[in-house]
């Protein structure tokens, strides 16, 4: 079972991959180093906030822009447990799944969750619970294959296990 519990950290619409991780920091592929600069062009305090509030709740078209996979990697390495968005940009969506960062599109929940609210996300069943207000939001969960890729921590681990298992 994949259930996350934590506090909401909110940002708006069209958060692009350039602010998630600026190109000037792509001189490394190390997740830890990347996480040092995550979101710094948008919110210099992100690094501290995320220690307390590690469920990102964001608006439309999250992750638009560059195809850099460093973006979901930096977010994951920052300690973010999962992202709830109104919508994700196409390439970021695939990249997040491929590196094992849990994401969910629940537009209604985004509108009704406030920064700092305590949230529980039942990823297997597509249920978001706002513990602070008692509201419950439902969406379609991912198909089992995609859930499996995310649970294994991404496409590489998933593929490696399959290759080892002779599948």
């Amino acid at each position: 079972m994949m259930v996350f519990r934590g506090f909401a950290l909110k940002y708006g619409d069209n958060i692009d991959t350039d602010v998630i991780i600026p190109a000037r920091y792509l001189n490394t592929t190390d997740p830890k180093e990347l996480s040092e600069h995550c979101m710094e062009d948008l919110d210099l305090d992100f690094k501290n906030k995320v220690k307390e509030k590690n469920i990102l709740v964001v608006g439309e078209n999250f992750g638009c822009g560059s195809s850099r996979e460093h973006a979901p990697i930096a977010i994951k390495a920052s300690g973010v447990q999962c992202i709830i968005a109104k919508s994700f940009a196409r390439i970021f969506y695939r990249n997040a799944i491929n590196i094992g960062l849990p994401i969910l599109e629940v537009p209604e929940a985004v509108d009704k969750i406030n920064e700092g609210d305590e949230i529980e996300v039942d990823f297997d069943n597509g249920i978001v619970k706002n513990i602070s207000t008692g509201e419950i939001f439902k969406t379609f969960p991912f198909p089992p294959l995609i859930q499996e890729i995310i649970k294994k921590g991404g496409l590489i681990n998933f593929a490696k296990e399959r290759i080892k298992g002779g599948k």
């Binding site: 390439i91 695939r94 590196i99």
Partner: peptide, 26 residues
């Protein structure tokens, strides 16, 4: 291509699209 502007090549009547690094590797 592992670059979001890979869609440029559509100017030459092909289907081209951007992907992430894991997908380029795969």
């Amino acid at each position: 291509g592992a670059d979001s502007h890979t869609c440029t090549y559509g100017a030459l009547n092909c289907f081209s699209t951007g992907v992430g690094s894991s997908e380029l590797a795969a």
